[in-house]
Amino acid sequence: MTAPPLLRVRDAARYYPSGDTVVRALDGVSLEARAGELVGISGPSGSGKSTLLLICGLLEPPSRGEIHIRGELVSNASADLDRLRGFRRDHIGFVFQKANLIPFLTAAENVAIALEIADIAPAAAHGYAVELLRTLGLGHRLDNRPAKLSGGEQQRVAIARALANDPSLILADEPTAALDSVRGRQVMELFRRIAVERNACVMVVTHDPRSLDLFDRVLELSDGRIVSETTARSRHRPEAITE
């Protein structure tokens, strides 16, 4: 029996006024994604990829359509996204092109702060942050500040921070754009591992064709619409990331 979709987008559109015209950033997108899936979103610049992630992540409301997460209607054109802050915190993790780490905090502190904001006691937050970072191969970098970390290491800290509250939906916008091919591949393999081991739905916007074999499906957007869907022909079993 096929599991119900963790994320369901129904006829989502997002329009922005621009002078005397209206820009259709999204124009009727529907999709489903399940727990354990790694889904890629591709397409040219301006095709609506980042807008789709913002809407799925409850950071912007759709101008039309609905967003369902874990079987619950959570957003539509009349949604009050401020009221959904707790839902976002508990169920959604975000990873962006830049790691956006706090420069004066260590790797462990950058992860722990996400838990402390969620009212987890500092000692418990630090302990779980250390556990996450060790799992992602950064046990030797716990006390290093961002300036002492490589680009790939910084992005892994950002991923650990996104995982801190055990989200069921993880959204990543061009997370490997600033990385070389080796580090970019490692980060994509990590997302593959997270989807499988944590039974999470992971959706990644990417322009990088070198790691498309890792995705279960790749959706291509153009002019705010899904124009194709490709299913991966092969499955890659990533090796554990070591320190």
Rank of each mutant, 00 (worst) to 15 (best):
L58N: 04
L59I: 10
E60G: 01
P61K: 15
I67K: 07
H68R: 07
I69D: 06
E72I: 07
L73T: 03
V74F: 01
S75E: 07
N76M: 04
A77E: 15
A77R: 12
S78I: 07
A79C: 02
D80T: 02
D80S: 04
L84G: 03
G86E: 14
R89D: 05
D90K: 14
I92K: 03
V95Q: 13
V95C: 11
K98S: 15
K98M: 14
N100C: 10
N100A: 14
N100P: 02
N100R: 13
F104H: 15
L105I: 00
A107M: 10
V111D: 07
L115D: 02
E116K: 09
I117C: 14
I120S: 09
I120Q: 13
A124V: 10
A125W: 11
Y128I: 05
A129C: 03
T135A: 13
T135E: 15
L138W: 07
G139S: 03
L142K: 11
L142A: 09
R145W: 03
K148H: 10
L149R: 12
L149P: 04
R156I: 00
A158H: 07
I159W: 09
I159M: 06
A160N: 13
A160F: 10
A162L: 08
D166N: 15
P167H: 06
I170R: 05
I170M: 13
I170F: 03
D173Q: 10
P175Q: 13
T176W: 12
A178P: 00
